[in-house]
Nucleic acid binder design. Structure first.
Lengths: 385, 385
DNA sequence: CTGTTAGCGCATTCAC
DNA sequence: GTGAATGCGCTAACAG
């Protein structure tokens, strides 16, 4: 077996330093006329050289082996202070930037997590993302963001994402999870955020984290009923999003607890323009209600404002409550009664669970639920401070 | 040189299929008792196997070479329909997910761009990110997000990021660019968003894209002056952010154009609480003004609301204008006069320029400037519709 | 404390 | 149209 060992072929930018020529220091400058210091590569100034320094060039420059370079860069093994300095200098003068892909290949980890969300309008997604990125970074992981809305081939995009991450977190409030489950077939750990168990296929490799919805929705609805309102309408479409449907369930439950039967939901998308349309249907008499429980604040705000502009009194004529506690809800008059979710924590939790899973932990059998908080302001009928 | 060619060592999960044994179909199932179909790997159900399928296992399963597998997966070279199907079936049954890192190493491209922003509160960063991600995705690039705020070692984080992307976009409205320039030393293409030339070192490899500030700030200020206001105050700290300083320059210019001299800026950070504090200084008489030109909407909104709560009339007693046109600015009464920036387009442009640069294009010598738009509502003194 | 040596999994010439 | 061989740059045993 003592055949010629595999020997790295000579690279164009590296002189053929034969192993029989152990010139200790700058063997790189040998073939080059020693006019300019080797620090400046012979490229047009201001232009990134086509190929950067590698661990080999650094090792050569420092007069050590690539293993040693790797050691000082990883900071793992012990290296003598002298050689460490030589290496660091070489790194510096060569402007060495390691190639992440090569490391990933060697360590068999991408050291990155994917996050799939529909878009980024409103504070919900942003806070989620901030929580996720923050925790992921603490755990030494990069985050690759995939915005699903507007992508023509979401399954394809998710598949591509799977190619470069160790795990994926996905927002359940969309048609994403089924798509994703199909695209992944359990090959990567998945954490579904704000989804609900029945909606998530491929269940054995996915895990759920969410904010509590049913109970707080019931609580909020009960509060509105306590204000003496009797004709409540739920505004929002429970079908596509598990969390919205859970909130509607709470709405129904609050009615049932008093022997009342809840009205069917007013199914509209989450757009401000839709809120205006709903308000108009109320103004025209098509819809009758003395209180509106809206699936989110955007809807609630646009409805309330439109109603007010048309001369209706909120909450006098009609109460309006939302969900999410966006900034605007603090600024409008009356203040919007709403529910605050621990969205940031949800992101943190998702990153955390993903990390556990990638580390080999089994998925938690039951979803992790984070508590929410009802925020009472004026729009529900509470006295304004 | 006819020594033993380098031969892939046998992997534990791959049987030693000697080249002399060209069993066409399922050579993989040979050593295994053919009880269960080879589709199901012998791992505990529901648990991701420690190591997934590789291009080798797919090739073996399909009875072709890895080159052919690569061809059908890349869709580049022509492959006969028959073999293409065999490969696709193998991919399917093996649940093959390619390893992005290996591809990156081979093609010598990460196919990913980094985006560095301070945080994600408010619509500005979100829209920027959406524009950036959308365009990057269209260009076949992933985006790795780095949130700088709260990171203890930003230069380190940026350096790490540089390890795994082909180029980096960074928001200039922060102390980021210098840090970044130092961390990168021109080894990767960089696009600075909303920065200003003098603030950006390492200029030869960086490029600037921004929204126009000076002129629109001058225009907005002139408009306020046209309302008959004479004691204007600029609220916000021009120092740390180039765009804020440019807006102040416009503020000053508008005064100068009428032979007036602008007051020194009221230097406060961009927090709502700071706005409240500024309002209190006005209420107490410490600050005197009949109009406030604020560096952004958050500041303007919190000031205006506080003033109103204290019984002041906006714009009667004092006009307040902002910058950014956030959602709340449409909802408050009076509506907030502000300036709308093409933030989404800024993100798109950044991704686009980065792509050009990675493709080898030289950085544009002059910054690309996108036009902004003054949005007149009631808070400046204009009649409310 | 340091160097040698194999791979990691994929894309890619070349041959055929 | 297909296969064999090679290298991308790095980490990690394994020797010394």
């Amino acid at each position: 077996m003592a055949t010629t060992p595999r020997q790295r072929p000579q690279r164009t930018d590296r002189p053929s330093a034969a192993p029989t020529t152990p010139s200790p220091e700058s063997s790189a400058s040998a073939p080059t006329p020693a006019t300019t210091p080797a620090t400046t590569p012979a490229t047009t100034p201001g232009v990134t050289p086509a190929v950067g320094a590698t661990i080999y060039s650094v090792a050569e420059r420092a007069g050590v082996s690539i293993a040693t370079v790797s050691r000082v860069l990883q900071g793992r093994a012990v290296v003598s202070e002298a050689t460490r300095q030589k290496v660091l200098e070489a790194v510096e003068s060569l402007h060495y930037v390691p190639l992440g892909a090569a490391r990933s290949l060697a360590v068999r980890h991408h050291e990155a997590y994917g996050l799939v969300i529909p878009e980024l309008t409103g504070p919900y997604y942003s806070e989620l993302l901030m929580g996720f990125e923050t925790r992921a970074a603490e755990l030494g992981q990069s985050v690759i963001l995939l915005l699903a809305n507007g992508k023509s081939d979401v399954p394809g995009a998710v598949g591509h994402l799977a190619t470069r991450v160790d795990g994926i977190a996905v927002l359940g409030s969309a048609a994403l999870p089924p798509t994703l489950a199909r695209a992944l077939r359990g090959r990567k750990p998945v954490v579904v955020i704000a989804g609900s168990s029945p909606h998530v296929p491929g269940g054995d490799s996915v895990e759920l984290v969410a904010a509590e919805n049913v109970h707080s929705a019931e609580q909020l609805t009960a509060h509105v009923l306590d204000h003496g309102r009797s004709r409540l309408l739920y505004v929002g479409d429970p079908d596509p999003a598990p969390d919205i449907s859970e909130r509607y369930a709470g709405f129904v439950a609050a009615h049932a607890a008093r022997g009342l039967v809840a009205a069917e939901p007013v199914r509209v998308p989450f757009r401000e323009s839709e809120g205006v349309a709903v308000a108009d249907r109320i103004l025209s008499g098509e819809l009758e209600a003395d209180a509106l429980v809206c699936a989110n604040d955007e809807l609630a705000l646009s409805i309330m404002t439109r109603l007010q502009d048309a001369g209706r009194d909120v909450p006098g004529d009609i109460a309006v409550v939302g969900w999410d506690d966006v900034m605007t809800s603090r600024y409008v008059r009356p203040g919007m009664t709403t529910v605050r979710q621990p969205v940031h924590e949800l992101g943190v939790l998702a990153a955390e669970r993903l990390h556990q899973r990638v580390d080999g932990a089994a998925p938690l059998p039951a979803p992790v639920l984070l508590p929410t908080e009802v925020v009472l302001r004026g729009s529900c009928g509470c006295p304004t401070p």
